[in-house]
Computed example of a mutant assay.
Amino acid sequence: MMQPIPWGDLQDFLAIARAGQIARAAAQVGVDATTIGRRLRRLEARLGATLFEQTREGQVLTEAGERLLAQVEAMQRASERIGETPEGDRDTLSGLLRISVSEGFGTWLVAEHLYDFAARHPALTIDLVASSGFLSPSKREADLAVLLDRPSAGPVVASKLADYTLRLYASRGYLDRHGTPTRETIAADHRLVGYIPDLLYSPELRYLREIDAGLSPVLRSSSINAQARLIASGAGVGVLPHFIAGGDPDLVRVMPAVEIARAFWLVTHRDTRQLRRVRAFRAWLVELVTRHRAQLIGP
């Protein structure tokens, strides 16, 4: 009779399946790659099956791995529901809530107000992953994600969270030194700030191309916060969301006809979207963006 498989080994398997790489999974779990690799080999030996194929990109599930993944995800969902408090106890949420958001939205809006949600639910541990790139709800890397475009596939539920507006800005100091850009002068006479083209994590970030197909940034960063600092310091002209630039009195909107419209999409895994902590945060976030619509859209 086969010995029971430790739940920790199954959780490590789940981490590898979601991350797609042993090294990345090890970092998420908090162990070194050698340890998680050894646990994987132990699990495969117990099951008598190969769970992953090694590719140049990382680990890809075999048929046996796909079957095990379905079982382990069901076990994971059951374990999460055990930690859920009864519906009648509205004030108590516990466990871990991981939220993946774009760097700008996460820094300038969510982080600014997250204390309110945290204060309502002091027993809840909250991970705010605000970075250039996203964790995937479809792979269960995050409970909720705020994405720049609607996902086209995967076991997820997506809805539009909010529209937002981006405009072209420069600092007052920059304009004093270099003059105000126009459509005729911006390409030849002004230094442009923007994203690094080959590090774009969404096509929705190709802002300058919408102004003029020939525009190309010469001061480039994968971080919208770094771009905002560059523009505020007088280094150049660039596109920023109104929720970042609109409240800075030293930033001036230039070329007023330029207005770029985008939307945030709220995405959850279809199997966990009804967890109380997920529902609570989703409702709080919708209320937050509704309250701050003027900050997102601008005048």
Rank of each mutant, 00 (worst) to 15 (best):
M1V: 06
Q3S: 12
Q3L: 12
I5D: 04
W7D: 15
L14W: 05
G20P: 03
G20A: 11
Q21W: 00
G30L: 06
A33G: 01
A33S: 13
R39W: 07
L40T: 02
L40S: 04
R46C: 10
F52Y: 03
R56N: 03
E57T: 15
G58W: 13
A64D: 14
G65K: 13
R67C: 04
R67E: 14
Q71L: 11
S79D: 15
R81L: 15
E84I: 05
E84T: 08
D89F: 03
D89N: 05
R90Q: 09
D91R: 09
L93Y: 02
S102V: 00
F105L: 06
W108A: 11
A111I: 04
E112A: 10
R120V: 00
H121W: 10
A123D: 13
L124G: 05
L128V: 05
A130F: 05
G133W: 09
F134G: 01
S138R: 10
R140I: 07
E141L: 14
E141I: 10
A142N: 02
A145S: 15
A145T: 11
V146P: 01
L148D: 13
L148T: 01
R150E: 15
S152V: 12
S152F: 03
A153L: 03
A153W: 01
A158P: 08
S159L: 07
L161V: 11
L166W: 01
L166N: 13
L166D: 08
S171K: 10
R172I: 13
G173H: 12
G173P: 03
G173Q: 12
T180W: 00
P181W: 10
E184L: 07
I186W: 08
D189T: 05
L192D: 10
L192T: 12
V193E: 04
P197D: 15
L200N: 07
P203A: 09
L205D: 01
R206N: 13
L208D: 08
L219R: 13
A228I: 01
R229N: 09
R229M: 14
L230P: 00
I231P: 03
S233K: 10
S233G: 13
G238P: 06
P241F: 11
H242Y: 07
G246V: 03
L251I: 10
R253Q: 14
E259I: 03
I260G: 00
I260Y: 01
F264R: 15
L266C: 07
R270M: 06
R273Y: 08
Q274I: 00
L275F: 11
R276H: 05
V278L: 08
F281M: 06
F281A: 06
W284Q: 13
W284L: 14
V286Q: 14
E287Y: 01
L288Y: 06
R291M: 06
R291T: 12
R293E: 15
L296T: 05
I297P: 00
G298M: 09
P299I: 00
